[in-house]
Amino acid sequence: MTSSVCVVGTDATMVYDALHRVVEEALGGLDPAVALEDFTARDATAPSGESVVPAVLEALYTPAFLVERRVVVLRDAQALGATEAAPLLEWMGAPTPATVLVVAVVGAKSNRLVKAAAEVVDVAVGSRSSERAAFVRTTFESYRVSLDAASAQEVAAVVGDDVARVDALARTLQSIYGSAPLRFEHVAPYLGDAGDVPAWDLTDAIDAGDAALAIEVARRMLGSHRRSGLQLVALLERHYLNVARLEGSEATTKEAAAALLSMNPFPAGKALALASRLGAKRVATAVAWLAEADLALKGGESYGGRDLESDLDLTELTVVEVLVARLARLSASARRR
């Protein structure tokens, strides 16, 4: 194994799930009581203001004793300042033989320790369904759980953006089925509720004029319990206010729209196309509907308690479903012009 490994990502759960696997691989069956030293950059048990780095360095420069190698783990390394990180970077440039440093960074890959590591394990997962399915397969394989490609795709579809659940799911399945070949029907009972999906799944369905799909996506977003009705309305407000800024502007290309909105050219181009298709009157109508929905969710309307089937708040569910259906039909009417 390489002398230094950095596990990096923006989701703490995924970083530490991957860290667990990397440390197991680094130990390779060695007794952790003898071979492992584990530190946290901001250790709550340490005296106030005392840095953990001297103890980490002592572990790194101490030769392995009674075992073939020593594994030193440093968690939450993103909390280290430049001065604290400097001696660790120096060690990574000239590592002690038979010693492996495993660093966990919850944050960006621009961190100095990430750049200096001999090996980087990036736990970020793309938003495309194929990338999520590949992540499911890779994670399952790391636990020797056998799942066919079609089933992995179905698991990825249910999990959605909530990919942090996949590691725990794989561990559960491994403890129950071992390495036996599995199909989706074996996995389904342990999946739980459908996870969240990207915001553009909702805006794309609305912009395409597909009311049924827009309602389905909105329900899934609410059902994941990661977004409230007000958050969905705020998401759509940003989308349509961008469209409103472009409607009647001098922007005619996605690059010009991106400059005006201070955003990436691809979503700016989609907003520009929608502004051109809807026109001023429909854009104004959409903004008015959004304002009505915002007011309704802030106490303006009440439709009772919770939906018996989905356990969602009935007011949130009704207001959001009506809103996305109206916006989708507005887009559909513009397409028929």
Score class of each variant (00 low, 15 high):
Y61Q: 05
E316L: 08
S262E: 11
A12H: 06
D196W: 11
K281C: 01
A271N: 04
A164T: 04
S331F: 11
A156V: 04
E309K: 13
R337C: 09
A46H: 07
E321G: 03
R335L: 15
D162N: 02
V283C: 01
F184Q: 08
R70W: 08
F39K: 02
A208Y: 04
L323R: 10
T203W: 02
T83V: 15
L66A: 03
V7A: 11
A41Q: 02
E131F: 09
V145Y: 08
C6I: 04
V100N: 12
V187K: 06
V136P: 03
M221L: 15
R227D: 01
S179C: 08
W91A: 01
L191W: 12
L246N: 02
N242G: 15
R183I: 14
A35L: 05
A134W: 09
D201H: 15
S262F: 10
P95G: 07
E292K: 14
A212C: 02
H239C: 02
S262H: 12
G304T: 13
R128W: 14
A41W: 01
A286D: 02
D76Y: 08
V103M: 01
K281V: 05
I215R: 08
A291R: 14
E58D: 15
R165C: 07
D196F: 09
A328I: 01
H225E: 07
L202K: 06
R226A: 11
R165S: 06
W91S: 06
A41H: 03
A212G: 09
G209M: 05
L314T: 12
G29N: 12
E50W: 15
S142W: 00
W200R: 14
A118R: 14
E131V: 03
V121K: 07
C6T: 15
Y303E: 04
E255I: 01
A194H: 14
D43N: 04
T285V: 04
A44R: 11
M92P: 07
V7M: 09
A251Y: 00
V320G: 00
G223T: 04
V233R: 04
M14C: 10
V287G: 02
E131Q: 14
A18N: 09
T315M: 13
D162I: 00
R144K: 12
G304L: 11
G107V: 00
E37Y: 12
E250I: 12
W200T: 14
M263L: 09
V34R: 10
A208G: 08
E250F: 11
L232A: 00
P95F: 07
G269M: 06
A150H: 08
S146D: 13
R132S: 12
V287T: 14
L169H: 05
Q78A: 04
D122S: 13
V145T: 02
G300W: 03
G81W: 13
V283R: 03
S302R: 05
E90Y: 03
A35E: 06
A334T: 07
L260P: 06
L19N: 00
C6H: 09
P267H: 03
V155Q: 09
W91T: 08
S3I: 12
G223V: 06
R337G: 15
V155W: 06
A208P: 08
V8K: 12
A12E: 15
R112P: 14
L312W: 01
L60Y: 11
V123C: 06
K109Q: 14
R238I: 07
A18F: 10
A280G: 07
L327V: 08
L19P: 02
M92W: 05
A156G: 03
R226G: 10
L57R: 09
A46S: 05
A26G: 05
